[in-house]
Amino acid sequence: MTEPVLQIDSLVKHYGQVRAVDGLSLTIGQGEVLGLVGESGSGKSTVGKCVLRLTEPTSGTITLGGRDVTHLSRRAMRPLRRDVHMVFQDPYSSLNPRFSIEQIVSEPLLRHKLASRREAYGRVAAMLEKVGLRTEMMTRLPHELSGGQRQRVGLARALILEPRLVVADEPVSALDVSVQASVLNLITDLQRDMGFSCLFITHDLSVVEFLADRIAVMYLGRIVETGPTADLFAEPRHPYTQALLSAAPVPDPVKARERRRIVLRGDVPSPLDPPAGCRFHTRCPLAFDACRTVEPELADPRSGVHPAACHLVTPEHRPDAAVPGRTIEY
């Protein structure tokens, strides 16, 4: 197998007492799109910032293209930034208000000394065309553009060096629904075309359903379930994933009436003091005694099934462990 583009190993990031990310591991292969899904406060954006070294991880390792970058200085990190960039959530604060669109998109080229200002012009024009912006936009300032256009500029900036990995942190959630689809389609097309790997962070499972090869579901700083997108949608194994999927709207009203909704009660517990045992047990409709004391591992003994961190899936703590293979029912 080829070297993974990104490998995160037991990443921990604490902001003071807040355990934003608490022991998270994931791998993204060449050309692979991983959807990292979780609700707000689950720590998913922190993961993205740690990958870019925009924030210092508390512990754990981050490996980019086989190189451990966890402890590189800012200066030593700089040349490696050719291979990884980021698309930010907020299209309004992610572009320098004093730079023209041309300046914004040419920055990566100029900062890595890959082009002179004159050479950069042509490449910026070509890149803008790729993201669906007319070259007249080059002289405009960010405030003159709509949210969708700004996000296309952010995409052009992230992709102009043809990086191996792009971290997309909720790139469409600040946009109007009508614009979301067009930007998502653009990201999909560009990814197929350019073949970059992508860590796509979102709170909305439906956004990554058609884009991601694999999905990792996060809850309170940990991954609770991960697997190929189709498997995860077809057979969600963690009660949290099941609840998330059941909350997504279904366009067909007949199907919508037939399906069972799992409504979670209460709020996400504070990451200041995550619950003991399984972090989800305070809201889990299926929780039993072991869930309150023993933390489930993200592993699966059976082959051919994707892993989920739940005692119902890894049966040694399960009360009805004598009944192997029993499906989870409500």
């Binding site: 870019l52 040349p79 050719r82 208000p97 900062r111 952010g154």
Partner: peptide, 12 residues
């Protein structure tokens, strides 16, 4: 975010 983006751009 534009400062984070500048860091990601590779700016000193």
């Amino acid at each position: 975010d534009y400062v984070s983006a500048a860091i990601a751009d590779g700016a000193a």
